[in-house]
Design a protein around this nucleic acid. Structure first.
Lengths: 345, 345
DNA sequence: CGTTAGCACTCTCTTCAAGAGACTGCTAAA
DNA sequence: TTTAGCAGTCTCTTGAAGAGAGTGCTAACG
């Protein structure tokens, strides 16, 4: 589907780069001038019209320059940006900052936030994680065929467990729904220990069987929960022109303050994704509505293969991805390295 | 010096109240109307002119309404505001929020921040404190008379210790300065333990005597250091019209992110002040330049007589002091109470 | 056929002037 | 001492005009 010509890719890449820097719609003339392209503004205009058709650019109004769309940024990050390492001298600078700190995980983490904020000019987040016993949230019972029942259990984390069960006697869907309702009330928010202590009315083998399933599911489960959150660089963001309107700034700050939101975000991207490395979330990826104009660059850190938390940056969609991605990657690797070392001692 | 007539006080109080609510210059007509005063706008104008002369009000331009000055707010808070308790039903609401939380100091503190932010509509800060061993920062030696020398030692906290010492033999100021210089280099940033391990060149009784003084000073000293900082309600602030200009919002956010600044602020107001209770810092009290347009309401909390930290709110100078002061007081008392109880168990 | 110069057209942004509106300070009367 | 009345001041809004920036289209060019 990558039906873009090389020149179109070039135009898109340069336009994103230029727009990130200037925060103003980029015109054909400017682009050709600024990057000494060997074709004329008219040609650039044609390509830009093409890119607009493909959904990568838009004009704020007829006859203004172009601005990348969400899709434009995504294409840029995935295919055009390249995977540069952070320049050596910056790596050294950051290493130095870490070596000067006290040798203590807490310090490294809060330093990470500060370093990320400083080097990327946006807001930074670092979270620690720990696992917590799972709690029961919701149960649904679905009759499938004969005495077979599909048991769906939802944990407080949102995690879903499914299991089929064969009951002693067939029950109608209505009866199953009533029973599920009952269990939902009894077991609301309980953890494994509390569930163990529930005394069921005797003489209902179906109820007992289902409840046993619930107990087993919760018992074996752990839920990843964010612990501490370190934040830094909020003030940076307010320098960005996109936050000139206070209500936009407010929205972004609310995201930044909303632990539940951040937890969800980090869990979903870092822990439920199978691809390792740096994750870039552009404009909420059409999942998180509130992140409409916001982007994040996230990575996990930890000792060897054990993930201990997530770190990254948060900024306007017009963000220097080509700087942010290598920086986040480098810091996450550095912190992981430091933690591993300190654990081997 | 309180040379204001009763009516002037009334006008000032109402004007502050009204301005806090409306965030616009208040005119004589509006004031009389809104509060059904039994004198005419013309009279109000005369009083306002008087109050302007006294430095409590100003006009943003000729023939606009009036706005309170820093001094206006201070007078209001000190003399006019009254010392209302928080209304019973709000007290109950807040208590409820606390009783629903887990019974754990960390939770109480982060909850405090959230409650303060919510009820006062501004940003909230809660800090924990712990004492830490003092470290050496700087030494100055001043020759006073004959063999008498004034030893001035500065700790890392900024705390200053003075002591006079009588040396074996008189030294010139130049010699003293050199010696101080030498010690400053050797002992930089050392704590008591490190100072103990320093081996001095033998045969210099003066040096030894002075160094002994340094050791003793540092040894007995502890320094109060802020630990965790809980913040909440940042987003609230951006709703205030004073933060419509991004650079102002940025300045305030920078304060909020600047741990060193907050430490200094809290230490100076809460711990070096002798008056207990709630402290109101209006417009930086001409000490902290960066707090120019900002006000804080702070109080300490802790079990019985042991201060464990500080909490309070931070907002624009146009802040609802009459709501903030009782709220901060109540929350600080409530947290103290909860902590005391939990320690007695 | 792709590329490009030229140009008409569109839309925003700035500037300026005029007028409305909001308050004040002053004067003179109550 | 208080207050009605009023001239004067300053801001804010509105509208129109003009400059500026940039595009899309057309037609010419290699």
């Amino acid at each position: 589907m990558s039906g873009l010509t090389e020149r179109q890719k070039l135009v898109l890449a340069l336009l994103v780069r230029d727009y990130v820097e200037r925060a103003e719609p980029i015109s054909s003339g400017r682009l050709v001038d600024n990057y000494q392209l060997d074709f004329s503004p008219a040609t650039a205009r044609n390509e830009m019209a093409e890119l607009e058709g493909a959904g990568f650019l838009y004009q704020p109004y007829t006859s203004a320059g172009r601005i990348p769309t969400k899709e434009g940024y995504r294409y840029y990050v995935r295919k055009l940006m390249g995977e540069d390492r952070l320049p050596k001298h910056i790596q050294e600078m950051i290493r130095h900052q870490f070596y000067q700190a006290r040798h203590d995980v807490d310090d490294w983490l809060s330093l990470s936030a500060s370093v990320l904020a400083q080097h990327c000019g946006v807001a930074a987040i670092v979270t620690t994680l720990h696992t917590e016993e799972a709690r029961f949230k919701h149960l649904a019972l679905l009759s499938t065929r004969g005495r077979q029942v599909l048991v769906v259990i939802i944990l407080n984390s949102g995690e879903v467990h499914q299991q089929t069960l064969v009951l002693d006697e067939g029950l109608t869907q209505a009866e199953l729904t009533t029973m599920a309702e009952r269990i939902n009330q009894i077991a609301a928010k309980m953890d494994a220990k509390q569930l163990q202590q529930v005394e069921l009315p005797a003489g209902n083998p179906n109820l007992e069987a289902i409840f046993r399933t619930v107990r087993q599911t919760i018992h074996g489960s752990e839920v990843v929960v964010a612990g501490e959150i370190y934040r830094d660089g909020l003030a940076n963001m307010l320098s960005e022109p996109e936050f000139a309107e206070p209500h936009k700034a407010k929205r972004t700050l609310e995201i930044f303050e909303d632990r539940a939101m951040l937890d969800d975000l980090l869990t979903k991207t870092i822990f439920e994704s199978d691809s390792p490395g740096v994750h870039v979330i552009i404009g909420g990826e059409d999942v998180w509505e509130r992140l409409e104009d916001t982007s994040l660059i996230l990575a996990s850190y930890g000792a060897s293969d054990r993930t201990m938390g997530a770190l990254g940056i948060l900024g306007p969609m017009r963000m220097a991805y080509s700087r942010g991605v290598p920086t986040v990657r480098f810091v996450s690797e550095l912190v992981s390295e430091l933690i591993s070392e300190s654990m081997n001692k």
